[in-house]
């Protein structure tokens, strides 16, 4: 019993220490984002890494999600003769939920892991200390550009993913479920509001922040050796994914609650 209470207490302490650490880390990182020197080249490089190279993953994920969504909602709505709502269901689900969440989770796996591995390796091989000795603040040089790139790139990725997902639904709707193409398109746009897309993009920016922050944080405080880097990578992906789901619920509840 005492053992249980002790380990519970220890976990609570460790958790609060981690939350405190992350808040402090975030404050320092954001502070340095606002102060020169600005590492423009680093930001561009990270945008290419985080945004451009994530396009195939995000595109494929949303394409197939849009397709399966059209199939499934058709099956469901056909049972009470509401087949013509398929287009609306697809576009609303994609823009409000599936686009941002699926893109967020896929990018968390791809980018969160690689950021944690890269920064973690720099930590265990003393490259981060070397930055300090070479008149460069590691927080400013490594962390800032990644976080900026994450916040900027995720909404763009999600917007593209939204379009591809809706297109996936259209393909299935028109070629498989025999909807009339122009009717499907007009149904897609009929009930879509600016807010639906906008909320999705706001979520995406938050997810981009979460993913890059978790990658940087776990990499920066990586334990020693290859084992430490491996753990940092896993922790970055797991914590980013969980935080994305929590943030998604919170934002939805705040905006639509």
């Amino acid at each position: 019993m005492i053992g249980f209470v002790q380990s519970l207490g220890a976990s609570v302490l460790a958790l609060s220490r981690m939350i405190g650490g992350i808040v402090l880390f975030t404050t320092i990182a954001l502070r340095w984002v606002l102060v020169p020197p600005f590492y423009g080249r680093q930001i561009v490089r990270q945008m290419v890494d985080i945004g451009y190279y994530s396009l195939p993953v995000v595109g494929l994920t949303t394409l197939f999600s849009g397709m399966v969504l059209a199939l499934q909602s058709y099956t469901g709505f056909a049972r009470f003769s509401a087949e013509d709502t398929v287009a609306t269901v697809v576009v609303l689900s994609i823009t409000r939920e599936l686009g941002p969440v699926l893109a967020g989770l896929m990018v968390a796996g791809r980018v969160g892991a690689s950021i944690a591995a890269e920064i973690g390796t720099m930590r265990v091989t003393d490259q981060i200390d070397a930055l300090d000795t070479l008149s460069t603040r590691p927080m400013q040089y490594l962390v800032g550009p990644r976080i900026i790139a994450g916040i900027v790139c995720l909404p763009i990725l999600v917007l593209i993913g939204d379009i591809i997902g809706v297109f996936g639904g259209y393909l299935v709707g028109v070629y498989n479920l025999d909807f009339n193409a122009s009717v499907y398109l007009s149904k897609t746009l009929e009930f879509l509001e600016f807010e639906d897309v906008f909320i999705g993009l706001v979520k995406a920016a938050i997810f981009g922040f979460i993913i890059t922050l978790m990658g940087c944080y776990h990499g920066y405080y990586s334990g020693r050796g290859a084992e430490g880097v491996g753990k940092a990578t896993t922790n970055a992906v797991v914590s980013a994914s969980i935080l994305i789901l929590i943030a998604n619920y919170t934002v939805t509840a705040l905006f639509f609650g």
């Binding site: 003393d126 490259q127 070397a130 603040r137």
Partner: peptide, 18 residues
């Protein structure tokens, strides 16, 4: 930071930027 500018250092495992 000012102090660090007066030092030059090599690390045990090189620590060149990959």
């Amino acid at each position: 930071e000012a102090l660090l500018r007066r030092f030059g250092m090599t690390f045990q495992f090189g620590a060149l930027f990959d």
